[in-house]
Amino acid sequence: MTTLSLGAARAGVELRSFWRERDAVVFTFALPAVLLTLLGSLFSGVYEGSTVTSAQYLVPSMIAAGVASTTFVNLGIGIATDRDNGTLKRLRGLPMPPLAYLMGKVLLVLAVTFAEVLLLLAIGMVLFDLPLPASAARWLTLGWVFALGVVACSLMGVAASALPRSARSAAAVLNLPYVVLGFISGIYYTPIGALPDWVIQLGSVFPLKWMAQGFRSAFLPDTVLPQEVVPSWEHGRTALVLAAWCIGGLVLCLMTFGRRSRQTS
């Protein structure tokens, strides 16, 4: 058995367990879709000088929140649960390369995250007439923001999995920072430019604000730029902040995950 095929087998087990676990599906997968549908239906109006409706403005931001949910929240809860219920201990006793466990998680996160993005995109297109990115350049933007956002949020999720003390508290512990980040990153409150300055400054420290802004730049026309914090998509800064979180997340991971698994071994 090669590491590759064992990783694929782990992914099969992870995916099956995820879809059968109603908590996981409701909390990390369905919640963003429900919020998008509700909030998108409540908001009304078209931003001045553009053709963008508030609901359309909301969709890319909610896609970013969905990605954060299926990466950060999903991994944080998943690994905390694996540690608490004996999965990690069992795997350590099997002739399995640790890389296969990691591969299983990566493939789970990718599959669930793709499904989440497609679901939110479908809701945005069907209910709120969101157009797809208008040019190859905008598709490219969508691609690199997605890649950096997934890596940064996943690594933070792995690091955060050390916080909950049990599987039972994991959902609560991971969802609190997630919901708070959603508010201070201008996801649920649109447009982001209408938030108080100190909230924007706080939110700008974290990757979610930049991922959401990056997705808006892929889907929305430049005529909506006056609604942003500064009238620019700030692609350079977005890449920089997200990359910094990838590196910081990796360091945090190595520090906390190593320590926690040694404690419980």
């Binding site: 367990s17 059968r20 694996d82 219920n85 004996g86 999965t87 006793g93």
Partner: peptide, 9 residues
């Protein structure tokens, strides 16, 4: 191992 409850689903 001593009592585990993994892989419940």
């Amino acid at each position: 191992l001593q009592a585990t409850d993994d892989a419940g689903e």
